[in-house]
């Protein structure tokens, strides 16, 4: 099988990349486009650290074949800060000390964004469910859940979108 040129829409940019057959979206985002916020904790869909949005839907980039993404719009955590301004969801993670080593944080923020984009006023149970595919080993999940609750509150106060 030969290398292949594909086009991807990532964080609002049109990217052309040469990929190996069966390359995952994670490989392309990390190794070709150097979007380092996409982490690689297990490579088998078990930890959520590689979470990205594909046309707004939460996806595990380690289980997504790059060439199957097609015209869909891919968003990584870097895509939230195109104008450098921090978004309320990220601010809530900071204020709630919702990260320690930080390795799971990008995936957590993306999972939370996917949740808030479809359900701006989630219950605590819905937040827990929304983050259930994402593992953390140091902070503990309580501050992360509190961060998402605060972000949801901030959004309902201001009427803004999550990010």
């Amino acid at each position: 099988m030969e290398d292949k040129l594909i086009r991807l829409a990532v964080n609002g940019r049109d990217e052309a990349v040469v990929i190996q057959p069966l390359a995952t979206l994670q490989d392309v985002l990390r190794d070709k486009l150097e979007l380092n916020a996409v982490k690689s904790g297990c490579g088998q869909g078990g930890c959520g650290s590689c979470s990205v949005l594909v046309d707004g839907e939460l996806q595990l980039s380690c289980l997504t074949l790059a060439e199957r993404v097609g015209d869909a719009e891919v968003t990584t955590l870097e895509g939230l800060n195109e104008t450098n301004a921090i978004v309320p969801l990220q601010q809530a993670f900071i204020e709630n000390y919702a990260a320690q080593c930080g390795y799971c944080t990008a995936g957590m923020v993306m999972a939370a964004k996917a949740l808030l984009d479809r359900n701006p006023a989630p219950s605590r149970d819905e937040i827990v469910e929304g983050l259930s595919g994402n593992l953390c080993r140091c902070t503990g999940f309580a501050p992360i859940v509190r961060a998402v609750q605060q972000a949801a509150q901030a959004l309902s106060d201001t009427g803004e979108e999550a990010s």
Binding site: N36, A37, K39, T76, I86, Q90
Partner: peptide, 18 residues
Amino acid sequence: GQRDLESHARGQTTYYED
């Protein structure tokens, strides 16, 4: 304040693999 929190939240913290 935790010094590296903003960097974590932005996904800008550099790990060995980055």
